[in-house]
Amino acid sequence: MLGWMVWTAPTAAIFIGLGVLLAGMGVWGRLSPPVARRGFLRIETDRGDRLYIALITAAIVLAGWLAVTDLSMWLASACALLVAAVIGRWG
């Protein structure tokens, strides 16, 4: 049924990771309801909002990295993870 898609191990790992992350956020939200707060983003966000903003920002960092340079994608991934962690913690 999905034979037309090229599923590589890294692609599968990303989607499995996103699924586990979303399921974990759902369980965490059920156990401890999120509270909106204001961080350096200057808008009121709860942890789900910050996760969404962090994922979009990480995708932009990775796409921009591909557009600008041909350096290692491991370095790009580290930069994207750092940006996402900063948004998640202090955003």
Rank of each mutant, 00 (worst) to 15 (best):
A76S: 08
L81F: 10
P33N: 08
A59C: 12
Y52C: 10
L82N: 02
A76T: 07
L55S: 10
S32R: 14
A36C: 06
I43E: 12
R89N: 04
R38M: 09
W7N: 02
A9K: 11
S77P: 05
I87T: 00
A84I: 02
L2W: 12
L51T: 13
V35N: 08
I53A: 13
L66K: 13
P10A: 01
A12L: 13
V27T: 04
W7M: 07
W28R: 15
G88K: 03
G24Q: 03
P10M: 02
A36N: 08
A9H: 10
W65I: 11
A9W: 14
F15W: 10
W65L: 09
L75I: 14
P33R: 06
I53G: 03
V20T: 07
A36H: 10
P34R: 06
A78P: 01
R42A: 04
R47P: 03
F15Q: 01
I87E: 00
G64I: 09
W74N: 14
R30N: 04
R37V: 03
G24I: 05
I53V: 15
G29P: 14
P33C: 08
A63P: 06
L62K: 09
I14D: 05
L75C: 08
M25I: 13
T11L: 15
T69N: 11
T57Q: 05
R30K: 13
I87D: 00
G3M: 04
F15L: 10
P34Y: 07
A85E: 01
V6Y: 14
I87R: 00
S32D: 13
T8W: 13
I53H: 07
I87W: 00
T11S: 11
M5E: 12
S72G: 10
L41D: 06
G3L: 05
I43L: 13
I53F: 10
G91R: 02
G24N: 04
L66M: 12
G39P: 02
